[in-house]
Design a protein around this nucleic acid. Sequence first.
RNA 1: GCGAAAGUGGCGGAAUUGGUAGACGCGCAAGAUUCAGGAUCUUGUGGUCGCAAGGCCGUGGGGGUUCGAGUCCCCCCUUUCGCACCA
Length: 824
Amino acid sequence: MEKPRNPRGYDPAEIEPKWQERWEAEGLYRADVDRDRPKHYALTMLPYPSGDLHIGHWYSICPVDARARFMRMRGANVLFPMGFDAFGLPAENAAIKRNIHPKEWTYANIDRMRGQLRRMGTMIDWRREIVSADPEYYRWTQWLFLQFFKHGLAYRKYAAVDWCPSCNTTLAREQVIGDDRRCERCDTPVIRKELEQWFFRTTRYADELLDFSRIDWPERVQTLQRNWIGRSEGAHVVFTAEIGEAGEPLEIFTTRPDTLWGATFMVLAPEHPLVARLTSDAQRAEVEAYVETATRQTDIQREAADKEKTGVWTGGWAINPVNGEKVPVWIADYVLMGYGTGAIMAVPAHDERDFAFARKYGLPIRPVIRPEGAEPVSGDELTEALTHDGVMVDSGPLTGTPADQAYEKVTALLEEKGVGRGAVTYRLRDWLISRQRYWGAAIPIVYCQKDGAVPVPDDQLPVLLPDDIEWRPSGESPLKLHPTWSKTTCPVCGGEARRETDTMDTFMCSSWYHLRYLSPRYDQGPFDPAEYDYWMPVDTYTGGIEHATMHLIYTRFFHKGLRDMGIVQGDEPMLQLRNQGIILGEDSEKMSKSRGNVVAPDDLVDRYGADTVRAYLMFFARWELGGPWNSRGIEGTSRWLRRVWLMFVEAEEDGKEAAPGIAEGLWRKTQKTLKQVTRDFETLQFNTIVAALMELLNEVSQARNEGAASSPVWRNVQDVYLRMMAPVAPHAAAEMWERLGFEGSVHLQDWPDVDEAAARDEEVTLVVQVNGKLRDRLTVPVDLPEEEMRQRALASEGAQRFLEGMTVRKVVVVPGRLVNIVAT
RNA sequence: GCGAAAGUGGCGGAAUUGGUAGACGCGCAAGAUUCAGGAUCUUGUGGUCGCAAGGCCGUGGGGGUUCGAGUCCCCCCUUUCGCACCA
């Protein structure tokens, strides 16, 4: 787009690169430990080096950069680092598509993105950059893995796991999304595979992860994490399966121990270990056939919500410990082996699923709760499960107890009799971290015939990735196919051994990157404890909400694990979390190359300059919501910056005398704006910051027409305005600051203190209401006594017109604001 | 089904948390300047009735509390997101 150049005008293309170079040369944004100043660690989720920086990257970085700049001007020593989450599936998949080595592809992207990031004019301290694919980084990812292993928080298990047939790797449960169970990265439906894999014991911290009392995180994220962790309170109850003479314990989990007397049958998951032995000879063929089908079915089929329940009687029985009753044991695929104990007691009268199952197979239904005031109903009469409260009936010692007390009583009874106890289960599963891919940090374990799984000794870390490899996926770990790489010796016995050939989930790398920023070159440990003491925890963490049940759970888990190992301190890594929304294309659809609605920040910077783009990203929507892009809207912030320039830098001295009150009024508005902008920066309300600056400019413009520029206050207004603007439009503010002859760099100035006295209005608009409706507006002194306000309001023309023929019943006076006259 | 968030002009969004609804910007309209403009500058811009002064209506819908409700309470509708045979 051709653009006329005015040599005197605001020309971002000229000033922006100039200032970026100067800042870099002067080291303006270096952040070092300084015990004399309060610290502020502002962290934004590190980008994936996927090729090009898109507008979403700008959206997640620029507004928080402005906030970090604001915090710095307020006196904090601010750490605002940046890095690249360089390992992982997308990099590898993209490299495969283009047939170049993932490493080459990734590092080329990083170079490109680094340049684009610099164009934003951020205050990133580039000395602290990290790249998670650098050996000096992943050395410590591997080291940390081993700490988890040594402390029993990482373990290897043979299990049915989720496998993405397109990415050719296993996935963590968190990376399988939707009711149709798709791969989080590529949307391909996952399948089940039985494999031996490495897990992290996230479930050990399930309860602690539910505690958000020490952190200021959005309610939404808390809810997502709570749902994900899925805590259920209930009881384990031990039935006795009729196997052999003495029987065998058969433990179930229930959230409704109070309904134990209504259990009329039991259901086991088809994979339950007792199934084979409970099965009678007569039922064996049928049971085996059912188990066979169930195992062959995918989870998608098994978990389909609308699927009709199926099941088979094993021919076996179990005894209910509270009443000694013998109930039939069934198997059905709606009971999942992975949850609870893989066995349930079925109470069809009070559970919808059990009800449906009982009706289908003609099993008895016995109500044990009678709703308040209702007539007794027999199980046969029921048309649906009774899920409401009431009074216990047919429940042995509990009969007559209100249902809401029964729960506690039964639990106590179970414990007393030694046949059960209160218990809690979770939906959360342990984190599967093995990946059958090349482009990741190798799991630093060696397998020896004699010594088993042995950690690679610290002095042999990192376990380097070989470059000469067939990295195209084949379903096997590429490292396994390398002719020599996996061959090694056992660190314990020196005998022949082979390396683990799976790599780690990339979320491992990002679980601790905030620690590596503290001392990216430190080689005595993952981070320098002295830096940790000063900078941690992260004060404000920002990023997309899509990580709520992945990265944000993992990183909290990681921190808690490391805390218990004595490696870090404190219970939480990030005190405050804020999420930005997503920028959609102009068509309100998700941006994508195929739709052709992608907004390229480079083009925008070419046309408007980085400052305009920064300001628009702060202004155009509520940051936490995002919304569709509007290519016309950006003209507004472009115009704003040009007008500021015009007003302060270019406009000729007109020699006009200031009209009375103009200077005071302008200064008052400036102070009011300062007050609002300060508050909004604190609370990350970016859109109203820019709006307030625009509003002030409108007033500046008007005051200038009335001679304000010749008043001594004019320079003070410029001073405060440029300081307020500096975090938003750092280049333009720096340039104007210098041109107007202010000392030093605007970015090293203090944030001005609000002059409350100057900000206070002398006169206010007094709103006069009659019966709650606006009838007049009066301009009155701000400190007008209440009685006087009352009198003036009653006497006002607008009120009088409506009060004719009415009687005033009451007058409500809100000092400095309004008077409401109640009349009939 | 359970849970969360959100519904305000043509559009993006403000509203000091119960006190002037629509700040700021986009768009639109009229005017000025300009050879011209998607440049710049004024002014206007929720709907409706009215020549006007001004009136009436208006924050998804319906009730309620209050002198006063976008804001608080109850019921309902819509949209988005998350979880979902989890015992």
